[in-house]
Amino acid sequence: MYGISSNITLTKGYRKSILANFGSRDIFHINNTEVKEIATLFEQRFFEKEEVSPELFQFLYDHRMIYKTQKKIQHHFPKINRIYESRHTIEFLILDYSNDTTLQKAIEICSAIRIPNLLIRGNKNIIDRIRNSISNLSYPESVTFITSNPSLLKLKNLFRIVIQEEDIQSFVNRDTIDLNPILFTESLSYHTYFHKKIYIDSNGFVKNTPESKEVFLNIKESNFIEKIKNIIITKEFRKYWKVHKDLCDICKHCEFRHMCVDNRIPFQRIPKEWYHENECTYNPFISKWQGEKGYQSIKSLGIRSTKDEFSSPLKI
């Protein structure tokens, strides 16, 4: 008797599925017509070698997806229950750099609330200033400096400080789809873009993310740290945190839904039904990316995902 490894996940989309192995980091993008046998095995979790086609068995064995066990102990191999856990109320603070006062305040906020990741967008060389400010602090643990300034991009990364090029492509694209166990687990229950994030714009206004509409305060105000501590626990600030992809019209049919980070604001139709105003760059109904030959928009397929309803001429 063989068991399917707990490292394996199968995410079914409308036309294609993703078979992923967290152990080896292999990803297989498979047509749903070919995925039936694996899907059944995956549900069963245990099988006898004779039950499976030889090619499939060889594939599973070669890719370290199965283990040899005995029928009498199969109940000792529990199904893994992935839950995202974080010991930080806020994981990411994003700052659009404008001056040193806001930089210092952002760092102060990280220290006071224990935010481990600080991301700063800017084109001015403030790397030394950052290094000096954080050297004696426990938080933020790391600073990612995001810039399009070529002279800054030439600089070497420092301890706890990484310099990254600003990504001008559309947010969700082929290159940003990522298989990683933490992202996967987070995506099961949370919105991987909005969850545990806080953003300060170049004028000091505080929001959940750059795309968010709601402004909560300005760091020029007095007692800004106390105020921030109070707003990050409110339902309003956390509005989108639990909108995971299985609640969203189109995304729930996409095989990449546990591998993507999507910056579009979701809108609620009714509880547990959310939609987006714009399409992302992948159409899971025809499994094509924007720019690929044969690509069509979701709308052009006759699918409606709006405030009023979700409807589709395709069998869903």
Partner: peptide, 24 residues
């Protein structure tokens, strides 16, 4: 060798948390 000092444990660490996903 560089260290991150943690006030919580009053100890020096050479590992630190970095973003695990695309943030902005």
């Amino acid at each position: 060798t560089n260290h991150l000092y943690s006030k919580i444990s009053r100890a020096n660490w050479n590992n630190f948390i970095m973003p695990f996903k695309k943030i902005i």
